[in-house]
Design a protein around this nucleic acid. Structure first.
Ligand code: MN
Ligand code: MN
Ligand code: ZN
Ligand code: ZN
Lengths: 150, 150
DNA sequence: TCCAAAACAGGAATGGTTATTGGTCGAGTA
DNA sequence: TACTCGACCAATAACCATTCCTGTTTTGGA
């Protein structure tokens, strides 16, 4: 569950995963493990369906609903994150750090955008609203190099 | 179709609306006009359903699909904008200027957050990705003052 | 006025996601 | 080891925002 992209480590270490399961009260079942492995195998930003197809290769008995449920649990206990783009299924990400993902409206590919300083937008927003700010996500869309040539 | 919030004008002037319809080739039908009026009457950030209910008060024959279609046209020709929060219906906005909206996860209310300088995030992102950046939206969620006391 | 194109009403269909239900598994206990 | 109880799971139905389809109506232009 640890993976390297260049010098950047993504994915929680095995110990952290066990800790988070233990502390949450959820159990690390074989299905949830399989979903986690599938996320790793998929790489990048798979949808629930993507994860489901990978999991099913090794265990054809797993149900799609179980994958939805497992991903919700993994997100709740802080092992993965999710992002939503309009009119497309939710994408999941092993990368827990705040970062920027862009989605190609042509082919649906999602890539990370390095080098953009987001500052502490959450704090700045909090200063300007009476709301209690819980979540700020930058949703970016565009055309990937391949689709620009389409 | 012009409205004032403090000193800030929102909503395109009548002339602009006609221009945009004429240039686009779409016709300004009574249903599309009714949808635009309903957006104004609703104020804020109504969903399609919200708009539909208002339109239906004056013309019970209008179909929900027509409202979806009309809103899509209005957005396409640049009279309104839309924003999407995860797991909730699309919200529409007469405010065409780039600005920040926060949604309460308790009651669903959407409010605008003034005073946050977004800079030109789009340009900065463009410098850091080979994608052709088309759209960057900041999606903010939290709890409104009322729901904080829940 | 007449015609072809665009728009509409009504309702069925779609697709991602969630809820329900009845059976299974497994960690803790005697 | 055998038992128990709750968490988990598979299967499937239900949900809900949105889109699609079909036949009808409206619209703007010849
Ligand atoms: Mn990412
Ligand atoms: Mn707004
Ligand atoms: Zn692409
Ligand atoms: Zn609220």
């Amino acid at each position: 569950m640890v993976e390297y992209l260049g010098r950047v480590m993504i994915g929680a270490p095995e110990g952290d995963i066990r800790d988070k399961f233990r502390r949450s009260g959820y159990t690390l079942t074989s299905q949830r493990r399989a979903v986690l492995d599938a996320l790793e195998e998929a790489g990048g930003h798979p949808s629930t369906e993507d994860v489901y197809l990978i999991v099913k290769r090794k265990n054809p008995r797993v149900a799609l609903g179980t994958v939805y449920q497992a991903l919700a649990v993994l997100e709740e206990i802080g092992i993965i994150t999710s992002k939503h783009w309009a009119e497309t299924p939710t994408r999941y990400d092993l990368n827990l750090r705040p970062h920027l993902d862009i989605r190609c409206t042509g082919c649906g590919a999602v890539s990370e955008v390095p080098g953009v300083a987001l500052g502490d937008l959450g704090a700045e927003i909090q200063h300007n609203t009476p709301y209690e700010v819980h979540n700020t996500t930058l949703v970016v869309e565009g055309l990937c190099p391949t689709c620009q040539r389409g």
